[in-house]
Design a protein around this nucleic acid. Structure first.
Lengths: 121, 121
DNA sequence: CTGCATCCTCTTGGATACTG
DNA sequence: CAGTATCCAAGAGGATGCAG
């Protein structure tokens, strides 16, 4: 059994739904991975994540902060500077996410082939 | 460094986007976890996953099949019987997903508290 | 620089009805 | 039983403009 009974039951009753939504979020995964290397500034994150809008970056960071995964530090200089870093719990999630990303890297080729062969039918 | 340079670069150029979308998908995660325990019938999955619509179950399974993560087996009896099971690669992803679900279990409490305390402000 | 507010579009996904 | 097809509502998310 890969999944314990307790978890299976949790799946069916959707108690995990809200947490999995966090993990499954498009941008959260990328942000968690990047912050795994250390603190980053807002503008730094924005440049590092290709295709993210300012709105989504802010919303995602707020949501990560709300979940206790990220800490937001404001330095009131002019112009202001804001740094984001993982909390200890955030780091443990970042580890999981990194593992998932490595899986993606390892199997990207396979998935691409599967898709092409499926679509060929 | 939790994330290798290669992956960081992949993140910024979004080459991983399509694979992460798969992983991040709401229903895919649950289905992968359930199938980790062994093959399941369509109706079985439907009953096991609370809140999923017939439409989404079918769409998600098709998409998993397309990615080479799930195998669909039709037994042409009356009524027809369709079984779904993980491919070898699907099993490796299921392991990752199970790990993520266990993380969720471990930190559900913490996240709940963080949210309540954040919202209290 | 770091954001918030608004508008507006497009996708996601639920409900329902119908088929082999 | 295991889908497919259609319709439709809700929400995600981009673009833009403004503010501290």
């Amino acid at each position: 059994m890969d999944v314990p009974d307790q978890v299976s039951e949790a799946l069916t009753t959707c108690r995990l739904r809200d947490v999995l939504d966090r993990v499954g979020d498009k941008w959260s995964v990328l942000i968690m991975a990047l912050l795994g290397d250390g603190p980053r500034r807002y503008s730094d994150l924005r440049r590092s994540i290709d295709g993210i809008s300012q709105r989504m970056l802010t919303l995602t960071l707020r949501s990560l902060e709300r979940d206790g995964l990220v800490i937001r530090t404001v330095t009131p200089t002019t112009p202001p500077r804001v740094d984001y870093e993982l909390t200890p719990v955030g780091h443990t999630l970042s580890k999981e996410v990194s593992s998932l990303i490595r899986w993606s890297e390892r199997h990207r080729e396979y998935i691409g082939m599967s898709r092409r062969s499926y679509d060929a039918r």
